[in-house]
Simulated assay, not measured.
Amino acid sequence: MLTSGALALAVLAVSSSGPLIAFAAAPALAVAFWRTALAAGVLTPVALFGRRAEIRHLISPAGRLTGWFCVLSGVALAAHFAAWMSSVKLTTVAAATALGATQPVWQGLIAVGQGRRLARVVWVGIGLAVAGAALATGADLGTSGPAVVGDLLAVLGGMAIAVYTALGERVRGSLTTVTYTTICYGVCALLLLAGCLAAGIPLTGFADQTWLAILALVLGAQLLGHSLFNYALHRVSATTISVLVLLEVVGAALIAWAWLGQVPRPAALPGLAMLLAGVAVVLAGGARAARRAARTADLVGRRRAV
């Protein structure tokens, strides 16, 4: 029940990301830097004073590999922000959103590469959800040179966030959410800072409303959204998480409608319905697989007892 509540709150929190980024009058990479840097700033004292044993373990030979996984996760998150937010500048927002929503496909392929077998019903649900996201956003892939580059960057953004989620699933088996997210967000912020400085992107001089939007992103999408998804990775598979993230398309549309007056296109409604159906199929398939695994484990235990 606690995990389900965390996931519901995470979806609601990340749904605010798109409207807030659209509202903030600042370069996208600068916003990405501040949201991760401020989040890391909030979490660092908690990790230093409350997770000292974990930090000591990470710098020891026994925990060094886990520490590197945290660093790589931060690299993947920075790559996602850099690729996807740059894609919006080169192609349409609709195409960038739809192509970035291919994350569950890459997540499923990563799971297969790790030796897991996904049920056919899960693949069906992934296909429905991704197709629904594409239809809901009205994906119109570009044909010009810059638009094609933007489309490719959006796909790379989807791949990068899948790697980030897979690494989080790996780390969360042995590390608490606070320690993991502190390192991940900190590494991501440093890389984004380097990118902003190299590209000459301004990091200050924004209006008060923009700073309020950035603060809302830090508290909502980052500290609540991303962190709660990372928390749930201890109990829920990365593939299921990646499909649930697609609900952000629905949530963002509703928030943009209520706050920014962006009324969803009637043609988007079938896509949103497909997306919701796909998520339901994946959740049902995952629950069925979990029950089957539990029955198998119980049967094996009984046989051993005999």
Rank of each mutant, 00 (worst) to 15 (best):
T137D: 06
T204D: 12
G186H: 05
L152M: 08
A154I: 06
E54H: 10
F229G: 04
G100H: 04
L43H: 07
Q107C: 14
A83H: 01
I183Y: 01
A287L: 15
W84D: 01
C184F: 06
A238L: 08
A258S: 10
A207L: 12
C196Q: 08
A198T: 13
A40Y: 03
G132M: 13
T137C: 15
V130I: 15
S87F: 00
L269P: 01
V75W: 02
L203G: 05
G138V: 05
A252S: 14
L12K: 05
E248V: 14
A39Q: 02
M159F: 12
L128F: 14
R303K: 14
G125E: 06
M159C: 15
A119D: 14
L65A: 13
A78N: 04
L152V: 07
V300F: 10
A32M: 08
V46N: 01
F81P: 02
M274R: 03
G113D: 06
S237L: 11
S4R: 15
A189N: 06
Q262Y: 00
L128W: 04
E248R: 09
L233E: 01
L153T: 01
R304F: 13
R52Q: 15
A238V: 11
S174N: 07
G132F: 04
L152I: 04
A160I: 10
S86P: 03
